[in-house]
């Protein structure tokens, strides 16, 4: 009979350790940094759009007030019984308002059919306003309305006579660029802040995760080494400070494995000895 090659071996060897390709710290860092980036971007997105909406509402409310003052003046004249078309002083009123604010692109007064009667751009008098503006006063709503027209924002109010009949409308155009310019400072600031916050928080996150998961890795590494040592040269896998319940169970596992290996080896030696008995 041939004797087993393992019989009488001094210790048992574990297979070579598998290399770590993606460490725990790297995996969790990736997840945490993705969350961080998303949070910062979403925060900036909401901050920007909230500010834009508050800012543009503020600008619109200012121009609505200007339109309201024009409306009051025009309606005062309408209430004297004049037709909208006959109110020559309206041209002067709207031109004065435009001259007060360089951001105002145009002020227009149009009748119920949508024909422009007065316009700060005199060349536009007699033309038709867009369907959306004509529709805005025909809907019967006597509140202010706002429309976007290519690069302009428009606020307007219907002109109503003292019998409650809508005679026409007054609208004021101002550039979208004005609002964009007002909020662009914030956008730049936010981008800068995100970049700084991202870098700073990433450093903290990665350092923290390496400390946290480095501990896990070290603990696992020391357990693995202890196992290798116990299986090859003997001893116990219990850490110096006693370890936690998992480590205690692991030490028992290692001890049992060592005991099993020894037992199997002894049994193999015994079988070998019996085998050699002729």
């Amino acid at each position: 009979m041939g004797q087993s090659s393992i019989a009488g071996g001094a210790g048992a060897c574990l297979p070579p350790a598998r290399p770590v390709r993606w460490s725990l710290a790297r995996k969790v860092s990736l997840a945490l940094l993705s969350i961080l980036l998303s949070t910062l971007v979403v925060t900036a997105f909401f901050a920007y759009y909230k500010f834009e909406s508050v800012y543009s509402a503020q600008v619109q409310s200012r121009y609505s007030f200007v339109v309201f003052t024009i409306k009051k003046k025009v309606e005062d004249s309408l209430n004297l019984g004049f037709a909208l078309r006959q109110l020559r002083q309206v041209q002067e009123i709207i031109e004065r308002e435009k001259s007060r604010d360089p951001q105002i692109l145009a002020v227009e007064v149009y009748d119920y059919r949508g024909e422009v009667l007065f316009d700060t751009d005199r060349g536009a008098i007699g033309t038709k306003v867009s369907e959306s503006l004509a529709e805005a006063i025909r809907s019967g709503m006597q509140q202010s309305f706002s429309v976007m027209d290519e690069d302009n924002l428009i606020v307007g109010l219907p002109l109503v006579n003292n019998l409650g009949k809508v005679e026409g409308g007054v609208v004021l155009r101002y550039p979208i660029a004005y609002v964009e310019k007002g909020v662009s400072g914030l956008l730049t600031q936010l981008l800068k802040s995100i970049a700084i916050a991202l870098v700073a928080a990433s450093v903290v996150a990665v350092a923290g995760l390496y400390v946290l998961f480095g501990g896990v890795g070290r603990k696992l590494g020391s357990m693995e080494r202890a196992m290798g040592e116990v299986l090859s040269v003997g001893g116990q896998a219990i850490p110096e400070n006693g370890g936690d319940s998992f480590e205690a169970r692991f030490a028992e596992f290692v001890a049992k494995t060592r005991e099993t290996i020894d037992h199997v080896k002894d049994a193999t030696d015994e079988v070998g000895r019996l085998d050699r008995l002729m």
Partner: peptide
């Protein structure tokens, strides 16, 4: 990862 490496060694002991 580190857990995978540990489990590889752990299973190795059982396999041994």
């Amino acid at each position: 990862d580190e857990v995978g490496r540990f489990v590889h060694g752990f299973n190795g002991a059982i396999r041994l």
